[in-house]
Design a protein around this nucleic acid. Structure first.
Lengths: 215, 215
DNA sequence: ACCTGAACACCGTTCAAGT
DNA sequence: ACCTGAACACCGTTCAAGT
């Protein structure tokens, strides 16, 4: 029955002194605003300044930039995980996985520069970011397993690889700024993940029949 | 009949004063060494220091970091373009494309951090890097077109997307440090690029036959 | 024509001093 | 228990002064 001042803004809910809680909230809000405006690599000093807080306070609450990002993303993370649970009950396993991956791309591109930060720490040493990644990976694993059990997706596909591939598609779209590109890339990726493959055509000579165009 | 002192180290071959040429070469060598040791985002000051040259001299020869990278990569760029020409004469168009993409991955992972630098400027405003990218794109375009003409690769695949996808696979492998991952990712990508797709299975209910495992 | 390095601006991170 | 901001280290970039 401890007093959790603000469960929404405090992921790891332990009681904070009132002024500390206030500073924490201001930092989250400032970071959110500046991430949106200038990307996930904004100067930490600027964030502290916008929060009207000493830089030391920022470091006290968020030892690393990843910790800050993780807390700012906290609600979005919960949302995408929940979305995975929902899609798990849809009638079309492969489509569910595809849809979820599409949403994952949205998630990792919330702020410019976020993909790089996430991907680095997805592998890297256990910051807060990875706890979020863990939940996401679990959600993806369930969707993937179901699609595989339904015989629609390659058995040799690994969750981490699938997630990282979606991630990289997001990274590309971040560079490209062409919103259509991401769909085509995900299309290619997803076709690559399907079970049924064309007949292996070993060392066929290049038949040149001026390939009839379709469409 | 102009005297080109060192065509290998000077891509854009115009005559330089002897000391300028010497500094230029030292900078290239120093950059090469430090890129290898510490990645493509090494401090420019360190590069100048290792070259025993003032920082201003570095900036004079290479206005941007990308210019420096482009010149350091110059020979590798020529090599991968030449490799494209060779593969264009192989008997198996799709395999040639696949093989070339594999080598492209090697190219963009020459130094740690290179993928990010290349991808950013592949889109970005025309630095020297892009001239290299242009040649590479041309090589890729020829290989892709041939594989498409042979009916092996999707007609709707775009060179830039294909290259960027290989690029992103490289980016992942850079994060992962798992050399096996890259092969599987490229495998998935390449299967996604193939022409022949499985029969479109519209709204089939998820058949749960506890999928027999193979291996 | 080219080189040099001091100077400036900026960022990340720590820590002694304060309440 | 928590906050503050000066201090330190480091990097990118420019430019006046030199040869």
């Amino acid at each position: 029955m401890s007093t959790i001042a603000n469960p929404d803004s405090r992921h790891n809910a332990r009681t904070l002194r009132a002024d500390a809680q206030r500073n924490y909230d201001r930092l989250i809000r400032a970071a959110e605003a500046l991430f949106t405006e200038r990307g996930a690599d904004t100067s930490l000093e600027d964030i502290a300044r916008r929060a009207a807080v000493g830089i030391g306070t920022l470091y006290r609450h968020f030892p690393t930039r990843d910790d800050l990002i993780a807390q700012v993303m906290c609600q979005s993370t919960a949302a995408i995980v929940a979305r995975g649970d929902t899609l798990l009950r849809s009638a079309t396993p492969a489509a569910a996985l595809a849809g979820w991956l599409r949403e994952l791309v949205g998630y990792v591109t919330t702020y410019r520069g976020l993909t790089a930060a996430l991907a680095t720490s997805y592998i890297g040493s256990g910051t807060q970011l990875c706890s979020g990644c863990g939940q996401i990976e679990k959600a993806g694993r369930a969707l993937l397993a179901r699609a595989q059990a339904a015989g629609e997706i390659r058995r040799d596909a690994d969750v981490r690889e699938v997630i990282l591939t979606a991630h990289s598609a997001a990274w590309i779209s971040e560079q490209t700024k062409d919103p259509a590109a991401i769909d085509r890339l995900l299309g290619i990726l997803f076709d690559g993940l399907r079970t049924i493959r064309p007949t292996q055509r070993k060392r066929s000579s290049p038949r040149r029949r001026s390939g009839r165009r379709r469409r």
